[in-house]
Design a binder for these strands. Sequence first.
DNA 1: GTGAAAGCGCTAACAC
DNA 2: GTGTTAGCGCTTTCAC
Lengths: 345, 345
Amino acid sequence: MASTNPGVAVPTIYDVAQLARVSPATVSRVINERGNVDAGMAQRVQEAITALGYRPNSLARSLRRQMAPVWTLIISDIENPHFTSLIRGVEDAAQAIDHSVVLCNADEDLTKERRYIEVAIAERAAGVVISPASDRHSSVDPLLASGIPVVTIDRRLRNSPVSAVLVDNTSGAQCATAHLLESGYSRVACITGPMRTSTAVQRLGGYRRALKRAGAPYDPRLVRVSDYKEAGGYEATGTLLAADERPDALFVLNSLMTMGALRCIADAGVRIPDQMGVVGFDDHLWAQLLRPTLSTVAQPTYDLGRTAAQLLIEQAESPDTAPRTVTLATELLVRESSVRTAAPR
Amino acid sequence: MASTNPGVAVPTIYDVAQLARVSPATVSRVINERGNVDAGMAQRVQEAITALGYRPNSLARSLRRQMAPVWTLIISDIENPHFTSLIRGVEDAAQAIDHSVVLCNADEDLTKERRYIEVAIAERAAGVVISPASDRHSSVDPLLASGIPVVTIDRRLRNSPVSAVLVDNTSGAQCATAHLLESGYSRVACITGPMRTSTAVQRLGGYRRALKRAGAPYDPRLVRVSDYKEAGGYEATGTLLAADERPDALFVLNSLMTMGALRCIADAGVRIPDQMGVVGFDDHLWAQLLRPTLSTVAQPTYDLGRTAAQLLIEQAESPDTAPRTVTLATELLVRESSVRTAAPR
DNA sequence: GTGAAAGCGCTAACAC
DNA sequence: GTGTTAGCGCTTTCAC
């Protein structure tokens, strides 16, 4: 029915100009509210626009302006709920300045990541926000070479001079670990994510620092490197529970793995918090619905996105400013899963 | 440092042509793998592309082709985890055919929705996937008039002839309600979402149908219309618990409200499942971590997105095909929260 | 099989 | 203040 309109051409700025008896330039001025246009003329233009149902072609506009009002948001794993409200933070900021957000799921895959960066360049994006799959492969260099503002989010890059928005992973992890030690747990295990991500490196660093400060030995047998996914958390926890000297507490470095860990602990019939203290990174609504309620390290995810957008705007306005790193605070939320109620075992 | 390169112009297809000593048309043919190009020439072109670091300007390409390889995905609430894997389903499909996804959060707001639709038209999007904020205001009409393929997802529109991908909300809700009744609960309450959404209408319909089939009376005092948000679920549950004749079971029509309901029930010290049976719409990983584990109606969210993408591709290929509605099955997952272990009270 | 040239729709000099 | 015009970078007839 109302599908394609074969004969009816989409009206252009020339059609509007003709109908309003002005030049295309004037129409353009009216649309973009640039320059002074006679009120009567502007009126006629508006009427012509309405009459024709004219909508500016932003492809043509962007081509002419050499820049599309688009931010490319490259996320390492969309399905990770941590990124959901971060995305929203970026999206809200984009909307405020009439930019669109192109969402790209790199899936922790460097090849996909690189392809999306190519797309961003090809589309002449106004900026790119990226949570890099790896802290070494600075796949963002082509962006810098193209003069496209870049901000890394959640994770940082080692060798590229780009702005970054991070949370204080080290201190978050340190607090969590210290808290477990102070609660009387002595063998605190840690399940970390891929060591090519700065978050895993920093959080593990915080864990180690807390051990050191507490005078506790660092025991590599209590550490499992996993993949930031639920199944990975389950499996890693399984090997910890099966180990000769079982840990009495567990610090899990993201929420998906935490869910896996909790599932495994439940399957094994181990009681939280008495037989096993647990703290997870990332806070979510369900954390307080669990019994015992789950202690977490909360991150300001929405602000992470919003701040990234700010840095992007900053850079677009003054491209020669040096890159900036903004670090947002984390907060340890102590709930029941990390506080013993009785003696262990 | 490597920020904008003021002097260095971005290479165009003409630069490549010049260096490879061929015409721009030939370069275009090589890039797009169209037409037959002499192998030697193609070789030279490839080398020139590499040498110059040339990347096609997709703005120019799309302008010329009158169409951007972009799908606009308008979601009514990004923060609702239900939509996360749906987004991923669309994104994966888009990636497979080299399309980008522009993510728009309409926030259940018709004005925002309409604005995003304008953007989609202005950008000459290749297609739009939308979960409409309202089933009446068919803000998609301008899209149809522009000949842009549209698919609604999760929700349907009443008066617009567009393809849709839905889940079988009615039967999902009916199963859940019937299950609660069969488990021996007699006063089954229901917390629904905004009645301008087809999901709320259909699920409430399923609830009523189950009551009818079981010979149970429909009591409006057991129904609360809320907003699909956590706080809304909390509040609605509060009013139900405060009512004269308290319900003994609760069916909540999405997961955010379910979390609110569970929090309220916990705060009130009401025991699940003995004093209150609970089933929630939408399954998530945390549902099985709760104690008691939470019964849910699971939806194939990823497939919802993937199917929407398929319909979009279908329509793009044959625009004159009549719109199609695909309904995917839901599944009732019976866990502990809806099965009594002892007598109530 | 290859090239020349027009033009997609818009904006921004520039001239008036 | 307004109009004329060139051109953003690409694809695609059309001619050879």
